[in-house]
Design a protein around this nucleic acid. Structure first.
Length: 489
RNA sequence: GGCGACGUGGCCAAGCGGUAAGGCAAGGGCCUGCAAAGCCCUCAUUCCCCAGUUCGAAUCUGGGCGUCGCCUCCA
């Protein structure tokens, strides 16, 4: 039995709705993937992090999630890019599929259940197009097959547009062969030198929208629970998917349409067409992927989010704050790794259309609480403090796990007893740093022990020299009441 | 032009009818040989402006002003 009622904002109804899956505890979720002709940018990163958190949250609430995310591996842009780079289109798409996984794995995005590629579903695409022609929804326009939007009642219901307005404001010159400028291509005839597939309509390739219908209908049927993607896909992509899918099946296509907001850069939407995009791999050169993830989750998923160095720096400090506490608890041996203890206020926040900023605030409140107990514990190492710290750390780890924030300890802790054990054999008053150019754990320990020695003799200039040496090597030394903590910066 | 979203402290950002969460930054104190990390305290009588509804509004209604998005390939 699932205890918590989840609410989500459905673009189809423009309302926050109770989430009721078709099968009681199974969720069929289709996420629009990338067209693989370039590296993923921040906008992709935000989108897939958001859907990843939705998925992790569903799983944490006891649902089985079947998650499909496609790769569009044939279209005009791919063909153009392949020609520019004088490579085979197939090699190009494989390269960027590999790059997709490399970049999104770093963001700790869980793998989908299935990653279908458009070109593996040509047969299914063809039979849908044939079905649409038989039902009168599609017709031949020159060598192409196009969908007739005016024959589909309810066109515009997702994006809230009327056909009349759309036609009036249509900015793109339309092919004179189409009955209506908004009719969209289902099957696009190919030129002799372009990749093509045989079909009853002639050699060609699928239009953009049809692949998602083919792949989701094949694996899910209709209706299915959730179809998600960026807000830029609402029109025309998802509108067209509804038209062709519902025209073909006669059933409702999708129950809940979810869309994430844009990444903004200097006040404008970041996009391929504006050319103002930053790739994930560029960001990773400056910031830890988890910093990016925290930055993304600091805003609600439907709001626009402003990308700039100040906001990223703020996210970095916040992530360091969480990691510091976890590091300190690691150094005390107070982390036992139980991740099944999620506070109810956190769950409630996510139940309300995935309110991650609110959810994060509960993590920070708990971090501060744990830190205050650590302060007491350092002065007075009582067992009751340890129990309290451990149980709160369990909750923190449970929460960051649902948000997909991956903590890895990069801290070493040496107790004062260990550091002072060999003092009897120390009879020097300087350090030859040349011997420590190549640091390993043994040498790190030695240096820290020497520093303890100099500190005890109150030779603070020497102890500070050692700390400066570590700083230059990229390590930060911190004195705790019961020993020394060292971490990579 | 049509449709839609938004405007909360120096910055980011929740709250959406019951008297302003959280993060970053800043200032003061504690701890420290000094640091770092951390703790404590301070930091919006007020939520773009104006009018209205209400016992009560940042939250609802109407009108302004401003920003952004979609209407074309885009997550």
């Amino acid at each position: 039995m699932l205890a918590n009622q989840i609410y989500l904002y459905n673009t189809l109804t423009n309302k926050k709705e109770k989430f009721i899956p078709i099968d009681e505890n199974k969720i069929k979720m289709y996420v629009c993937g990338v067209t693989v002709y370039d590296y993923c940018h921040l906008g992709h990163g935000r989108s897939y992090v958001v859907w990843d958190v939705w998925k992790r949250f569903f799983i944490s609430q006891g649902f089985d999630v079947f998650h499909i995310q496609n790769f569009t591996d044939i279209d005009d842009k791919i063909i153009r890019r392949a020609n520019e780079e004088k490579v085979n289109w197939k090699d190009l798409t494989e390269k960027f599929i590999d790059a997709y996984f490399e970049d999104l794995d770093k963001l700790n995005v869980l793998r989908a259940s299935l990653y279908p590629k458009a070109t593996d579903y040509i047969d299914e695409i063809i039979s849908i197009i044939q079905g649409l022609m038989e039902k009168g929804y599609a017709y031949r326009a020159g060598d192409d097959i196009v969908f007739s939007i005016k024959r589909f009642e309810g066109y515009g219901k997702l994006s809230g547009k009327s056909i009349g307005d759309l036609i009036e404001n249509h900015r793109v010159e339309s092919s004179s062969l189409k009955e209506n400028p908004l009719d969209f291509v289902l099957w696009k005839s190919s030129k002799p030198d372009e990749p093509s597939w045989d079909s009853p309509f002639g050699k060609g390739r699928p239009g953009w929208h049809i692949e998602c219908s083919a792949m989701s209908l094949k694996h899910f049927g209709s209706p299915f629970d959730i179809h998600a993607g960026g807000q830029d896909l609402i029109f025309p992509h998802h509108e067209n998917e509804i038209a062709q899918s519902e025209g073909y099946t006669g059933n409702k296509f999708v129950n809940y349409w979810l869309h994430n907001g844009f990444v903004m850069i200097s006040g404008e939407k970041m996009s391929k067409s504006l050319g103002n995009f930053k790739t994930l791999r560029d960001i990773y050169k400056i910031y830890d992927p988890m910093v990016l993830r925290l930055f993304i989750l600091s805003s609600h998923y439907r709001s626009p989010v402003m990308f700039n160095v100040e906001n990223l720096a703020s996210a970095k400090e916040a992530w360091d704050k969480i990691k510091n506490t976890l590091d300190v608890c690691t150094s005390f041996g107070l982390i036992n790794g139980n991740k099944d203890n999620v506070p109810s206020n956190f769950v409630n926040a996510l139940c309300d259309d995935l309110n991650t900023p609110l959810a994060l605030s509960f993590i920070f409140e708990k971090i501060r609480y744990v830190n205050s107990i650590i302060n007491d514990y350092e002065k007075n190492p009582l067992k009751e403090y340890e129990i309290n710290i451990s149980s709160n750390i369990d909750e923190i780890l449970s929460m960051i796990d649902i948000l997909g924030l991956k903590y890895t300890s990069d801290v070493l802790f040496y107790s004062r007893e260990k550091l002072t054990a060999d003092f009897a054999s120390y009879n020097f008053n300087d350090v030859n740093f040349e011997l420590f150019e190549c640091l390993n754990n043994k040498k790190i320990f030695q240096l820290i022990s020497y520093r303890e020695f100099f500190k005890q003799k109150k030779s603070y200039d020497l102890s500070d020299k050692i700390r400066d040496f570590f700083n230059k090597k990229g390590y930060a030394l911190e004195d705790l009441p019961r020993g020394v903590r060292i971490k990579k910066r």
